[in-house]
């Protein structure tokens, strides 16, 4: 449990995030418009969705030590399945979401059961292969269901009014905030449970877990299903915020999730949340920056790399791995040790 004192900052932050759509404050560099403008709220909602999705990936990678290259598949499931159900089959929204809930457990259960029979790099490759099969299915548009490169134009009729239209962006924002908070609470409960302890033991030394007399397999499968299930709901929010785009099925998409988690700090309480949020924000700001005149007027040597957000983020990621392996969430501790060392040096002299 969090002690009351340690809970103060997160609770204050959460309160701030809840009232944020009412704040007409301009934050110049970070956001393009005031906080309560639809564009900014949409971006913030996306940041929160990825905070949650990154945390779901961290359950696998950071807590259980499973390097999956197929997490995009389950996110994409949450994007495509409700879209197809509502648009192509003309289902009602509750029916579509019920279907998503069932499939988001059944599919990772089956695919996880198969992929977890191998470990390490082989596991990474099998998950990559399954996700790639998903990508191929989406791209090749079987039976005209997925729309191929074009994606699907969502049928908004069965959706409640409050998730449709630009004026209602704040409701989507709260929905995204609710998602991030829910993922955080579920992940925290799961990590604190006895299964969560076994996950970390598997990450540290799988052989030892077996020697103690536990079978790692069901625990790993549980982590896989839970993480995939949580990611699928992030996908559903992406559907409401952005729409259906085939890019969510690519291997690159999973790699960006990995980048988010490592950027924030793996296996830490807030690391993945911070990483997912920061990555999405940076990606968006860099994209806007690329279009600005002062970048476009630069000579090619500077302009080309500066107008490719993924280049800058990839380079930042390499720098983090090299110089700050704990990610952003290790910064306070690093700063503290720096200050202490200086203070110690001064008192010594």
């Amino acid at each position: 449990m969090m002690t009351p004192r340690r809970a103060v900052v997160p609770v204050l932050l959460l309160a701030l995030l809840i009232v944020l759509p009412f704040l007409s404050v301009d934050i110049p560099v970070l956001f393009g418009g005031p906080l309560d403008s639809p564009g900014t709220l949409n971006l913030l909602a996306l940041c929160l969705v990825f905070a949650g999705v990154a945390l779901s990936y961290d359950l696998l990678f950071g807590y259980t030590g499973l390097l999956s290259f197929g997490h995009a598949l389950y996110f994409a499931l949450g994007v495509y399945l409700p879209a197809i159900a509502v648009t192509e089959w003309e289902w009602s929204l509750p029916a579509a979401l019920a279907l998503l809930a069932v499939v988001a457990i059944a599919l990772p259960l089956v695919l996880g059961a198969v992929s977890l029979r191998v470990t390490g790099i082989a596991f990474a490759m099998v998950t990559l292969a399954f996700a790639q099969a998903g990508n191929v299915i989406v791209q090749t548009n079987p039976g005209g269901l997925t729309g191929g490169d074009e994606g699907i134009i969502l049928n908004f009729d069965p959706l409640p009014d409050f998730v449709v239209g630009i004026v209602n962006t704040k409701y989507l924002y709260w929905l995204a905030l609710g998602y991030a908070v829910a993922v955080f609470l579920i992940a925290r409960a799961a990590i604190g449970s006895s299964a969560g302890h076994v996950w970390r033991a598997i990450r540290d030394n799988e052989r030892r877990v077996e020697v103690i007399g536990l079978r790692p397999y069901p625990y790993k499968l549980l982590a896989f299903v839970l993480a995939s299930f949580l990611a699928a709901w992030g996908g559903f929010l992406w559907l409401l915020l952005i729409g259906v785009t085939p890019e969510v099925t690519t291997a690159t998409f999973t790699l960006t999730l990995l980048v988010m988690v490592v950027l924030g700090g793996t296996g830490t309480r807030f690391g993945a949340l911070v990483g997912g949020f920061a990555y999405t924000l940076l990606d968006n700001r860099l994209r806007n920056l690329a279009g600005e005149e002062r970048i476009q007027d630069l000579p090619d040597v500077l302009r080309v790399p500066l107008s490719e957000p993924l280049f800058l983020l990839g380079a930042l990621f390499v720098a983090i791995v090299f110089f700050a392996p704990g990610g952003i969430s290790s910064f306070p501790a690093r700063l503290r040790s720096l200050v202490y060392r200086r203070a110690a040096k001064e008192s010594a002299s």
Binding site: L255, E308, A315
Partner: peptide, 21 residues
């Protein structure tokens, strides 16, 4: 692990660079 992560970062960065050039 860090070696693999660095190659992931390089793959993303270099891929974007080709795209940009």
């Amino acid at each position: 692990i860090e070696q693999v992560l660095v190659t992931v970062g390089l793959a993303l960065a270099l891929g974007a660079l080709v795209f940009g050039i």
